[in-house]
Amino acid sequence: MEILILKADEVKAAMPTGDGIAATKEAMAMYAAKKAVVPLRSNLSAAKGQALFMPGLVEEADALGVKIVSTYPDNPARNLPAVSATMVLLDTETGMVKCLMDGTELTRMRTGALAGAATDLLARKDAKVFLLIGTGGQAMRQLESVLAVRPIDTAYVFNRKLEKAEAFVASAKDELASYGASLVPVSDLDHATGEADIITAVTTAKQPVFDGRKVKAGCHINGVGAYTPQMIELPPEIVVRADKIFVDTVDGVLNEAGDMIKPVNDGLVTREKIANEIGDAVLQKLPGRERDDEITLFKTTGSAVYDVVVAEKIFRFAEEKGIGTYVRV
């Protein structure tokens, strides 16, 4: 038996951004149509850390696998990452392992593709100004995915420390030069928030990261970073103001996303306003944007359905392109 090994740079090189967004839309539709089997993730606590196992099966996409994520806070002292991830893909016909790929880069790609797909479905077609809030490990793929689906002229990049925003922009300018957008580092959000046609927040903040009152009519917002009940990056004002809210999975968002849970618990919005899955917009069971002045919002906490479907696509592209190394076992 041979297993294809894909390192982080090979995962990134295998699949173009546009194909990742298309694969994510397929996964959204399959999940909404109840064609995906996604058991609850298992969390095992060891003496020095935690290991999470996130399985998924989408037979229609020939996608079967499990993403393993380990969090070991003491690892940096050993020159090892505190958080690591590996995706294990299996053959749906035989159940044999066929690929091991870097799960960290996969997560960045599929999370970026989620926001890109939602932006493509919900943002105004003539959106020109983008605001990216956060410059961490997810940020580059978040920026690229929006540039891939809308004709962005100006992309503001925010970090509280301007030098970090400037360093991110410097690295992004070469990698994303083909999109032709002007990348502008900022440390003051008020002007950029009011000008933006699209806003993506990708932080681990526990307090809102922008002023929801300053968001203009017609804006689309992606809430990507907050993934626990304690994390809140989206202001409650924008949850209230949004004309339409879509989520990747209702169960995930209403159990894990503090910036959605708190407005419901505080009585600011109803659960029903938030309980709309983006896959139903893909399937046209629910309308997406209907007017230019609507404020639309997409919230994601992630799901193994996106990991397995996107990973399967990456595997196929890698095989076609001769990327990666086969190991006989």
Results as ranks from 00 to 15, higher is better:
214 K>D: 06
225 G>W: 09
217 A>C: 09
193 T>W: 01
224 V>H: 01
170 A>M: 11
208 P>H: 09
234 L>C: 10
161 K>N: 13
169 V>P: 00
188 D>C: 07
177 A>F: 10
220 H>Y: 09
197 D>V: 10
187 S>E: 10
181 A>N: 04
193 T>F: 03
204 T>W: 07
225 G>M: 06
230 Q>Y: 12
236 P>T: 13
160 R>S: 11
218 G>N: 03
231 M>H: 08
178 S>E: 15
197 D>K: 02
229 P>C: 08
180 G>V: 10
229 P>H: 06
200 T>M: 09
187 S>D: 14
201 A>N: 06
198 I>N: 02
161 K>R: 14
190 D>P: 03
173 K>P: 02
183 L>W: 03
193 T>N: 04
208 P>Y: 04
189 L>C: 04
177 A>I: 11
187 S>G: 10
233 E>Y: 07
203 T>F: 03
238 I>N: 04
188 D>I: 15
159 N>V: 11
178 S>R: 14
218 G>K: 05
172 A>D: 05
227 Y>F: 15
185 P>L: 12
217 A>P: 10
236 P>I: 09
178 S>H: 15
236 P>S: 12
173 K>I: 09
181 A>I: 10
238 I>P: 00
167 A>N: 05
163 E>H: 13
162 L>Q: 10
231 M>E: 08
193 T>C: 07
230 Q>A: 14
207 Q>I: 14
176 L>G: 03
183 L>V: 05
220 H>I: 12
233 E>R: 08
167 A>E: 11
216 K>H: 10
164 K>C: 05
184 V>I: 12
157 V>R: 00
176 L>R: 05
234 L>F: 08
198 I>V: 13
193 T>V: 14
200 T>G: 02
235 P>L: 05
184 V>P: 00
218 G>Q: 04
234 L>D: 05
206 K>R: 15
217 A>H: 13
185 P>G: 10
226 A>D: 06
177 A>M: 08
206 K>T: 15
170 A>L: 11
227 Y>W: 14
195 E>F: 08
170 A>N: 12
168 F>C: 01
233 E>T: 13
185 P>R: 12
172 A>K: 03
232 I>R: 08
173 K>E: 15
168 F>N: 01
172 A>M: 04
211 D>C: 09
223 G>D: 04
214 K>Q: 12
158 F>V: 10
211 D>L: 02
212 G>D: 06
176 L>F: 09
169 V>K: 02
164 K>H: 14
215 V>F: 02
202 V>T: 11
182 S>I: 13
174 D>T: 15
169 V>C: 04
188 D>G: 11
186 V>A: 00
189 L>T: 09
227 Y>A: 12
218 G>R: 02
205 A>Y: 07
189 L>Q: 08
171 S>R: 14
219 C>W: 01
238 I>W: 02
197 D>F: 06
212 G>L: 06
198 I>F: 03
181 A>T: 10
213 R>G: 15
209 V>M: 02
228 T>F: 05
199 I>M: 00
202 V>Q: 02
166 E>A: 13
182 S>L: 12
218 G>T: 12
224 V>E: 03
233 E>D: 05
188 D>N: 13
159 N>H: 12
178 S>T: 15
192 A>N: 00
174 D>R: 12
176 L>E: 07
171 S>G: 11
228 T>L: 03
201 A>L: 10
171 S>F: 11
212 G>C: 08
238 I>S: 01
217 A>S: 13
197 D>R: 07
193 T>K: 03
161 K>V: 15
225 G>Y: 04
193 T>R: 02
209 V>E: 01
